[in-house]
Design a protein around this nucleic acid. Structure first.
Lengths: 186, 186
DNA sequence: CTCAGTATACCAAGTAGTAGGCAAATACCG
DNA sequence: CGGTATTTGCCTACTACTTGGTATACTGAG
C-alpha cells in the first residue's frame, strides 16, 4: 500500500487514541517503520497532516451518513444508525471519533484545519436536523418539537458521551448517556 | 495571599483555557511572578498539581450544587441553575469548566487524579439524578421517565456543548445545544 | 539522468525535574 | 530574654530528554 495513506491511517489511529498532541512524528515513524524525517517528505508539517486527516475523515463520514439516509427511510432508523456510528468509533472506550479527538485538541490547529472541523460539525448538525425534521412527519421519534435545537443537542450529547466514556475508560458510560436518545425511537 | 493558592488559581486558569498539557511550569511561573523551580517547592510534580486542582474543584463545585439544592426547591429551578453553572464556567467560549478540561486531557494523569475525576463525575451524575427524580414528583420538568439515564444524558450534553463551543470559539453553540434541556422546565 | 522516497545527522527550542545555595522566618531551648 | 537550629520559600544553574523541523546525501526505478 501507498506509504502516504499508510501514514494517514496510522496517524488517524494515534490521534484517536492519544490525541493530536499526544503523538510525535517519532512515534508515527516507528509505527509505520520509516524514519522520522521521511514523514516530512509526505506531510511537510504536522499542521499539514492535521488538515489531511480532517479532510479525509469529513469525506468518509459524510458518505456514511449518506448511506444511512439511503438505507433507512425512517427517522428512527437513521438516528439509531447514527448512534451506532459513534459507538463503533469508540472501540470500547480507548478511542474517540476523529472529530471529537480534534475538537478536544488544545494546541492551536492551523486555520484550514479548524475550518474543516467547523464545516464537519455543521454538516453533521445539518444532517441530524433533517432526521428530526423527518420525524415530525413520520412520527418515528418521540417528543420532537424543534429539529434544529434537537440536532445540536444530540450532537453535543454523543460527543460528550464519548469523552466521559474515554475518561472513565468504560464504554458503558457512552451507552448510559445515549440511552435516552435511543429510547426516543418508536 | 498565599503563594500556594495563587499558584493553584493561576494553574486552574491555565488548565481551563489551554488544557493541562497546554501550559508548562515555565508559563505558570511567569504568570505568578516566581521562578519555575520554585513551583516545584509547592507542587513537587505536575501530577501533584493536577491532583490538588481536581480535589479543590470537586469540593467547591459540590458545595455550589448543595447551595442550589438549598435555594431551589423545584426540579426545574435546580436544572436551570445547574446549566447556568456550566455556562458561566465557559467565560464566552474561551474556557472550559475544569472537569471538562481534565476529561479531555490526553496525557495519562496519575491514578489519584483520574480517581478524583471519576468521583466528581459520579457525584454530579448522582446530584442530577435526584433532580430528575424530584421532577417525577413535582412535575416541573417535561417528559421525565428514567432519572438515572436522563442524568447521564444531561451531563454528557453540557460537557459536549462546552467542547463544541470552545472548538468554534463561539459561546452561542453552548446555548444552542442546551436549549432543549432548558425548554424542559415548566 | 532525473527524481521520488528514504536515510543520516543535525538544530533550536521547549519540557519536567534536580542540585545546591541563601535569606528570612519560625521553633526550640538554655 | 538570647541565641541556635530548623524550616520555609525562593533563587540560579543545571541535566536529561523530547519536540517539530531542516540540510544533505544515498538509492533505485522509469
Amino acid at each position: 500500500m501507498n506509504t502516504k495513506t499508510t501514514l494517514l491511517n496510522s496517524a488517524e489511529d494515534l490521534v484517536r487514541s492519544r490525541g493530536f498532541d499526544g503523538f510525535s512524528y517519532s512515534d508515527l515513524a516507528t509505527q509505520v517503520g520509516i524514519r522520522k524525517a521521511s514523514i516530512h517528505h509526505h506531510y511537510k508539517t504536522k499542521a499539514d497532516l492535521s488538515l489531511a486527516l480532517i479532510t479525509r475523515y469529513r469525506g468518509v463520514f459524510m458518505e456514511r451518513l449518506a448511506e444511512i439516509s439511503a438505507q433507512e427511510p425512517r427517522a428512527s432508523g437513521r438516528l439509531l444508525s447514527f448512534l451506532d456510528l459513534y459507538r463503533d468509533a469508540m472501540r470500547g472506550g480507548r478511542s474517540l471519533c476523529l472529530c471529537v479527538a480534534f475538537s478536544v485538541t488544545q494546541t492551536a490547529l492551523p486555520k484550514d484545519s479548524t475550518a474543516q472541523l467547523e464545516g464537519f460539525h455543521a454538516d453533521v448538525a445539518q444532517w441530524l436536523e433533517t432526521v428530526f425534521r423527518l420525524a415530525l412527519h413520520d412520527g418515528t421519534l418521540r417528543g420532537v418539537t424543534t429539529p434544529r435545537a434537537e440536532a445540536h443537542a444530540a450532537l453535543a450529547t454523543v460527543e460528550g458521551a464519548q469523552i466521559m466514556a474515554r475518561a472513565a475508560e468504560d464504554a458503558t458510560r457512552f451507552e448510559a448517556a445515549i440511552d435516552t436518545l435511543r429510547a426516543r425511537a418508536i
